[in-house]
Computed example of a mutant assay.
Amino acid sequence: MNFERRDIILIVGLVFFMLGLSPFVGIAVATIIVIVMYFGIKFYVANRKKAIEKDVGEGICAECGSSILDKKCPNCDSVGE
C-alpha cells in the first residue's frame, strides 16, 4: 500500500465526509470511521489490482480478449492449427 498522488483526492474526500459526519456522531468517532474507511479502501484497491494483474498475465489477445499464455493465445492459436 504505497502512497500515490491520487490518494490526496481520497484524503480530501474523506475529510469532507468526516466534517459532514461530525455533527451527528462527534469528531472523535467521525475521525475513527474515516481512518477505517481510508485503510479499507486502500486494502480493497490493492487486492483488486492484484486480481487484475493475475488475470491479465502476459497480456491480452487483441482478437478475442483472452489471456496470453506462453506467448500464444489459447483460443486463436489453437484454431489456426
Rank of each mutant, 00 (worst) to 15 (best):
P74A: 06
E53S: 08
A30R: 02
I8C: 03
K54F: 07
V25T: 11
F43V: 08
I9L: 13
I9G: 12
C73T: 03
P23K: 06
A51Y: 03
C76F: 03
R48L: 13
E81P: 01
T31K: 00
S66Q: 06
V79P: 00
V34K: 01
D70M: 07
R48F: 10
E53G: 00
K42I: 09
I41V: 14
S78M: 01
A51S: 12
N47R: 15
L10W: 03
E63V: 10
A30V: 04
I60P: 01
I11C: 05
I35P: 02
F24L: 14
E53V: 09
V29K: 09
S78V: 10
E58A: 12
A30D: 05
N2R: 11
K54M: 10
V56P: 01
R5V: 10
F43S: 15
L10Q: 09
N47Q: 15
I52L: 13
E63D: 04
A62W: 01
E63W: 00
A30K: 01
G57C: 10
A51M: 06
I41N: 09
G80M: 14
V56A: 03
G57D: 11
V34N: 08
M18N: 03
G65Y: 03
I33V: 12
G13D: 14
R5M: 08
S67I: 01
G80V: 14
N75R: 09
V79W: 03
D55A: 14
K49S: 13
V45M: 08
G65Q: 02
D55Y: 06
A46Y: 12
I52H: 08
I60L: 14
G26I: 11
M1R: 11
S66C: 07
V15P: 01
G20Q: 05
G20S: 03
F17T: 08
D7C: 08
F17L: 15
K54P: 00
E63R: 07
G20V: 05
I8S: 08
M37N: 03
F24G: 03
A51T: 05
P23H: 02
C61P: 02
F39G: 06
V29M: 12
C73F: 01
K71W: 05
F24I: 07
P74I: 06
K50E: 15
V36M: 06
T31S: 15
V36W: 08
L19V: 04
M37I: 13
E81Q: 12
F39S: 11
N75D: 02
L21F: 02
C73D: 09
K72H: 04
I35D: 04
G57M: 11
I33G: 00
V36C: 10
E58C: 02
P23S: 02
M37R: 02
V12Y: 04
G65N: 02
F17A: 14
G26V: 11
K50G: 02
A46C: 03
S66N: 11
C76Y: 04
R5H: 07
S66Y: 05
L69F: 09
D55C: 01
V12C: 05
A28Q: 15
V12S: 09
Y38D: 06
E63L: 09
C73G: 07
P23F: 00
V79G: 01
E81T: 07
G26L: 03
C76T: 07
M37W: 08
F24N: 05
K49W: 01
V79C: 00
I41A: 10
F17G: 14
K49R: 15
N2V: 10
G80T: 15
L21A: 10
Y44L: 14
I60W: 00
Y38T: 07
V15L: 13
